[in-house]
Design a binder for these strands. Structure first.
Lengths: 326, 326
DNA sequence: AATCTAATTGTAATCGATTACATTTATGTA
DNA sequence: TACATAAATGTAATCGATTACAATTAGATT
């Protein structure tokens, strides 16, 4: 594979001139420019990013951290990230942590080793202490999950408000015993969504019953199945369920379909693509995932350029489908 | 951020020695080694991949091409790819083509520009002519979809046999009118799965009815919905359906649930995680996706090292669930 | 034609590592 | 102690681009 020297030689110019053509600097006469372009064609030359990156001390790669790629919630965000990155001549390194700390180290090192110019973290399980440490030296943006009062910039939605609206919707439909399927409250979003749930109940004078609040060990379908089974054991069964994620809600839906004698309304959170394919289709809170990804990249690129960025809170929307039309 | 020179100075040695410590070459005395390690600690040094990569003319990045990240079929493959890559000190660049040719060019250029050392393509819609051209200069492995009689090495499953077994299972259950929901036959897997479908029918003396074969425009849930609606218009409705992907099958399932007066058995293909969450759960062909990913990376790394690799055909398995237990 | 300015092109340093080869130091042997 | 050999370390070239600065050329002005 040819390098810039060979192009220079072939075109009878210096490497500087070739470089100028490559970066279309304006101070090249059209005559020499075409000589160089011809040489590039003839030798099928493609400039090496390795040389360029070293010289510019940048990799033009962005690290994207997420707990698991199979969680469909992230798919749309990644789409937004990918498109925005490419539009800005960046590429992304998608990294699953699987919530394993040893993975984290590998990924953090990629940044320290200059393999990536910055990080977008979407992983709620990430080690915030280490991330903050990394932030002292490298640009980072948090996407979706963030640290309250922390200093790393974030883009997110108002989870508390969204949960409040979702539960209010269930109450307006006449439900008084509304269960909450949520995850570990070490996660900010879980605390916020629970707060919204409670605010709605309180506003309508309904009691917050601890036995209607189930904490799952994870966000998988199976966790939703298990949660719903437990909730159906209650003497006074719930008439509706709000789950903090669609995958949990879909698990609950399955159990309701199979095992419940009475209909139970369900609301999820995220509006993953499968939520419109379930039976019944799922009422859920839609986050502007694609946009969230776009904003995250724009913020990160700004940070890389040294521009200070502001946090962004995007709008959500309650999508009403069959699961609350019983 | 410190560089190797500063470490050398601090430790009172030459850069060569520092480099030897970094790459734990054995010809360093333990005394100097600890001096160097101390300096590394003190200055919080992390070697730059930019310098190393240029010198070694490698990026240790692998390009992974897939049509769409939201298709859950790829999630597990990517898991396998990711883990195997990391185990070999590589990282992956996940790239969605969205089946857009202009994207292809961007990605192919990443390889030509040495940003990636090789390619794993899982995209059935990829431009094979260009890919073969790229293959002349760079290592490539095809994963899942491949080119019959082509020269690019691949890892895949026996689609024809799997389809044959799936349809045979439906026949054994007593079904005689079995529909096929398949995609465009420009894809090899579609041709192979149709061939398996026909072989099973013929073996049991059943006619291949063109009006029971529906070709979809894509692989989404909605395509399955539409296909099933059309099939239900037939005077002689099918009693069973074989779909060439789970997402299509899940779409069909939805329509059957809502609109069919008689039960219809359904078999899918891929065993995506959602196939065990549907209602009823879906009988499907399980491909060893994780393993496929692992093999693809191993083959690619071998190719990068200049070792010639053999094609691999992995075992599949028919997973019987509720959708064929009616 | 002589001079000045602007446009174009070239030279060489630089980014941060690795490594072949040269040199120094340590170790063993007679 | 002197010498041979092995181990440890250092010197400097190299990978392939970019770019500040210098040098050249072209064009304008008188």
């Amino acid at each position: 594979m040819a390098n810039i020297q060979q192009i220079a030689k072939r075109a009878g110019v210096s490497v500087a001139t070739v470089s100028r053509v490559l970066n279309n600097s304006n101070s090249v006469s059209s005559k020499t420019r075409s000589k160089v372009e011809e040489a590039i064609q003839e030798l099928k030359y493609a400039p090496s990013m390795l040389g360029r990156n070293l010289r510019n001390s940048e990799s033009r790669l962005l690290l994207v951290l997420l707990p698991s790629i199979s969680n469909p919630f992230y798919s749309e965000i990644i789409n937004g990230i990918q498109n925005t990155a490419i539009a800005n001549d960046y590429h992304i390194l998608l990294c699953e942590t699987d919530s394993k700390p040893e993975r984290e180290n590998i990924y953090f090192n990629m940044v320290k080793n200059k393999l990536a110019d910055g990080v977008i973290s979407m992983d709620p399980t990430i080690n915030m202490k280490k991330l903050n440490e990394l932030y002292e030296e490298h640009p980072i943006i948090l996407c979706s999950e963030y640290e309250e009062g922390g200093c790393i910039p974030y883009v997110t939605v108002d989870s508390e408000l969204a949960a409040y609206q979702a539960v209010k919707h269930l109450i307006k439909l006449g439900n008084e015993r509304i269960a909450l399927i949520t995850s570990d409250e070490k996660f900010l979003y879980a605390r916020q969504r629970r707060a919204g749930y409670e605010r709605a109940l309180e506003e309508f004078g309904l009691p917050v019953r601890e036995n209607l609040i189930y904490h799952t060990k994870g966000l998988d379908f199976q966790n939703g199945v298990h949660a719903m089974r437990v909730l159906l054991q209650e003497d006074n069964k719930p008439t509706a369920v709000f789950a903090v994620s669609d995958t949990l809600a879909i698990g609950a839906l399955k159990v309701i379909n199979m095992e419940s004698t009475t209909p139970i309304a369900v609301v999820g959170f995220d509006n993953i693509s499968f939520s419109s394919m379930t039976n019944p289709t799922l009422t859920t809170v839609s986050q502007p995932m694609y946009n969230m990804g776009c904003h995250a990249v724009e913020m990160l690129i700004s940070s890389i350029k040294g521009v200070k960025v502001e946090n962004i809170v995007l709008e959500h929307e309650l999508i009403i489908r069959e699961s609350t039309m019983i």
